[in-house]
Design a protein around this nucleic acid. Structure first.
Lengths: 344, 344
DNA sequence: CTGAAAGCGCTAACAC
DNA sequence: GTGTTAGCGCTTTCAG
């Protein structure tokens, strides 16, 4: 900038004014400066600007995994809102590791991002208290913070799961299995409680062995399924509720595998016969094109991201009202798999 | 930091040394400083650090749309490599708009990101020349730059499409339709040329009306499909090659719709009868669970991201060799839809 | 081993 | 309208 000023034969501040489009520069002078800028290939150094103004025009998003469709939709919505406010977005994946979450969050704080949106993995967020005290705007999305109060945007997980399970019950099922995430995760606990509520409301007793929490990879899901569908059970389950996106797909893949095996070998296999009713929490692409199409309790990941980001920018614009807690509804999307009747 | 120094009763530089883990500080002094840091809730201001050192430990990624599965996988891989190098990642979606691309890229340059990975949308990248001259490390991914030479990581689109179409030909098809992206997009042109090559090699003449370029939304794809499957054609196509992920899914959805309609109404509809052979460029989740399962030419989006990022960090580490051009292979994944025989 | 001084590139606050 | 000065918070350099 100094160089530009020298080249244009004007003062430093005049260049600054031109670069920032501030008023009070004669068109002639501005043109002179602009030419010097072009000739020198000058570009304003935002690091310096940030240091001076204290604003970075950047926000951070910490979530589990950018590559997961749920988070990538959330990410896209946050980015869109950020862009409309002239901010750039840092994205960071915690891989659901509390340590990594705090490392990333604090790294973003060191950069002095204007605000942070977090889908937390940690079970204690007091490490952020000093940052909040120092002026960090913070919004929690999808899961609430622990150890502090802050703006939070959640999904009505319990109600959603309850709706999904009640839907199965309405279609004649009483023995319904549940495969969900580890109970470490907030949303998982909420969804499980929705399952229990729906069963209780219908007066349907729950056999605790119908509940499998925490199988993460394909193989574990297969094991859980084998256990749930064990043919030696006196009262086998007739329907299944899956607690998230990835689990639903894993279950579908396992069932398809068993069906293929049974078709090929002719040997009856648990899960080898189509007809198990299924409702999944969280929608996913192509759910409508499978056979049967998959009934889901749909969340709105983009809405979650958009709402969180809007809340964040409202704070950055000076909204000093008490922390807000927003809960977004879910929508049951019947497509076929959840309307299959129980056998006999 | 000044405050910390005052509180600890030491010099500024000593605090700096402690904060950065530099050697040459007595353990006792370090402990003193650390206590002052904790008490004050001090966190180093990276904006200032960046200004001084010239390094931001941040890179940028500009692509079409973070929410698209292809890009979110690429994004995830880039982020992982960045993290392993201690860098944070800015993600920005251009929505395939050249203006937006350059705005975002230049905004990232203003922040003095250490490097930039771009999936370009623009048709001229000379606007980046001053930035490169100023030291920006730049890698193009998936599509090459126009108007300058830089490190580039591409996929072998032509060979992939050729393989896919040859696969259909090997299964007895001669009249093969092609639905692809706008010819404005590099990858689209390459894939179309692969289609032409495969047809030429098989001595199969191409009717230009079999080729539909540019239908983007669901409705347009439906129109294109109606045109391709027009029952008044003397020689109807027996197979279809789709140029990307989104188009494949859109086609599947259209076909499913026609089949459903025909089942319900009993009125024969073009595309209403299953059996059209299909190979799609680009893999997608659940392709294996559809009926029939979808044969695809799979790319490796994560590999693309990883390779690009590794190349970028090699440059940042001082690799000054001439620009590299890496081409990643595709893999044909036969699953059923591409092995359907032509009728009669 | 520790500290004082200079300056990274910019903008805020004032002169002129 | 335009220029000058000071200083954002840090690291680099060099002296103790």
């Amino acid at each position: 900038m100094k160089d530009v000023a020298a080249r244009a034969g004007v003062g430093l501040k005049t260049v600054s004014r031109v670069v920032n489009g501030e008023p009070g520069v004669l068109p002639g002078t501005a043109a002179l400066v602009q030419r010097a800028i072009d000739e020198l290939g000058f570009r304003r150094n935002d690091s310096a600007r940030q240091l001076r103004t204290g604003r970075t025009a950047g926000i951070g998003l910490v979530m589990e995994d950018v590559a997961d469709p749920f988070y990538s939709l959330l990410n896209g919505a946050v980015e869109e809102v950020a862009r409309s406010h002239g901010s750039l977005l840092f994205t960071a994946s915690s891989e659901d590791d509390p340590r990594r979450e705090s490392e990333l969050a604090l790294a973003l704080c060191s950069r002095r991002v204007d605000g942070l949106i977090m889908v937390p993995a940690a079970e204690d967020h007091t490490y952020l208290l000093p940052e909040i005290a120092a002026g960090l705007a913070l919004v929690f999305a999808d899961r609430p913070p622990v150890g502090l109060t802050a703006d939070t945007v959640l999904v009505d997980n319990a109600q959603g799961a309850r709706d999904g399970v009640a839907h199965l019950i309405a279609h004649g099922h009483r023995r319904i299995g549940y495969i969900g995430d580890s109970s470490r995760i907030y949303t998982s606990t909420q969804r499980l409680s929705g399952y229990r509520q729906a069963m209780a409301e219908a007066g349907a007793p729950i056999d605790e062995s119908w509940i499998a929490l925490g199988p993460s990879d394909q193989a574990r899901v297969g094991d859980a399924l084998d256990h749930l569908l064990d043919p030696r059970r006196e009262y086998p389950i007739t329907a299944l509720f899956t607690g998230n996106n990835r689990l639903t797909v894993a279950v579908l893949r396992e069932l398809a595998e068993r069906q293929r095996a049974q078709r090929v070998t002719g040997v009856p296999t648990p899960g080898g016969t189509p007809g198990l009713a299924l409702v999944g929490f969280d929608d996913f692409e192509l759910a409508d094109l499978l056979t049967p199409a998959i009934t889901v309790v749909a969340q709105d990941p983009a809405g979650l991201g958009r709402t969180s980001a809007q809340l964040l920018f409202a704070r950055l614009a000076g909204d000093g009202s008490p922390p807000r807690h927003i809960v977004l509804p879910t929508v049951l999307v019947p497509r076929g798999s959840g309307e299959l009747p129980p056998p006999d």
